[in-house]
Computed example of a mutant assay.
Amino acid sequence: MEELKEYTIPFIGLKAGAHQFKFQIGQEFFEHFEYEDFNDSQIELVVGMIKKLTMLEFDLDFEGKANVNCDLTNEIFDLPVSGSHQFVVKFGHEFDDHNEDLMIIPHGSHEVNIQQQVYETIVLSLPSRRIHPGVKDGSLKSEILDKLNELSLGNQTGDDSDDTDPRWDDLKKLLTDK
């Protein structure tokens, strides 16, 4: 996959110590990875890097919102996203990024591209089910939601959920009789 140059951090000219970089992540970033779950996104990423003699320590912190479709009603809403991830970059004989917490780049490298770590950190921080806040608090009015409520098990006609098994009633009496 082609690297996005804005996520390539040149470290060769930097002094040892802490450095900070800020990025604005929009929909183009996710389109580059062919990730189509977002309608739009506005995420601010702060990258903290500590340069040491033999390694680089990265701390990714992001916060923002992603415009997504609700999994229940398909209504569009802004999902707040935030999270962080730390990883280390060391030097070795060849490039290796199979470990999520350790990236190895070849000796003599003067820059590191962090786009894959940024992408994975954001996507993996998302909830598995994206539910519109209006569904949770009951304020969303939607035809789909009305139909789901109509078809739910608790609202079916002829529901005998109030009737209990008499055997259970007898067992419950044992708890109250002393």
Rank of each mutant, 00 (worst) to 15 (best):
I50Y: 01
F62Q: 01
T164R: 11
G134A: 04
A18Y: 12
I144Y: 01
L174T: 01
F58V: 00
E28K: 14
E2H: 12
S152D: 15
L45P: 06
D78H: 01
E111G: 07
I105K: 05
C70F: 09
H132F: 05
N74E: 13
D159W: 14
L153G: 02
G158V: 13
K147E: 15
D61H: 06
L148T: 00
S152R: 15
S128C: 04
I122T: 02
I50N: 04
D162Q: 11
R129M: 07
F91Q: 01
P133L: 13
H107I: 03
K51Y: 06
K5H: 10
V135G: 01
G17D: 11
M49T: 05
T164I: 14
H19I: 08
L145Q: 09
G158A: 04
G158K: 06
D40W: 09
N113F: 10
E63C: 04
E36V: 08
N39T: 10
H107Y: 15
I76W: 07
L171S: 06
I122P: 06
E3Y: 10
V118T: 05
E2Y: 07
Q24N: 14
F33L: 09
D78F: 09
N74C: 12
H93W: 01
E143P: 08
V47Q: 09
K141G: 03
V118F: 00
D146N: 15
D61T: 14
T73Q: 08
S139E: 03
D159S: 13
N149H: 06
F23D: 07
H98I: 13
Q116M: 15
L148Q: 03
N67L: 14
F77Y: 15
N69R: 07
G108R: 12
G138C: 10
H32F: 00
T164N: 04
D160M: 15
V135H: 09
D59Q: 13
T73F: 10
D160R: 13
H85C: 03
G26R: 01
Q116F: 09
I131G: 13
I122A: 07
E63A: 11
Q116N: 15
P10W: 07
K141I: 14
D165Q: 10
P10E: 08
G83Q: 05
L126M: 15
A18M: 08
I43R: 04
R130N: 10
M49K: 06
D101G: 01
D37E: 13
V88Y: 03
L60C: 09
K136V: 15
E6S: 11
L45Y: 02
G154P: 00
E2V: 05
S109F: 03
I144Q: 08
S84I: 02
D59H: 11
I122K: 03
L148P: 01
L60F: 10
E36G: 04
H110S: 15
L145D: 01
N149Y: 09
D71E: 09
S109G: 05
K5F: 04
L124I: 01
E63K: 14
P10Q: 11
L56V: 12
Y35R: 02
S82D: 07
W168P: 00
Y119W: 10
E44D: 14
E75V: 14
P127M: 08
Y7H: 09
N155S: 03
G154W: 00
A16V: 06
V46N: 10
L148S: 00
Q20D: 11
H132I: 03
F11W: 07
H85L: 02
N149F: 08
L153V: 07
Q86L: 03
I76F: 07
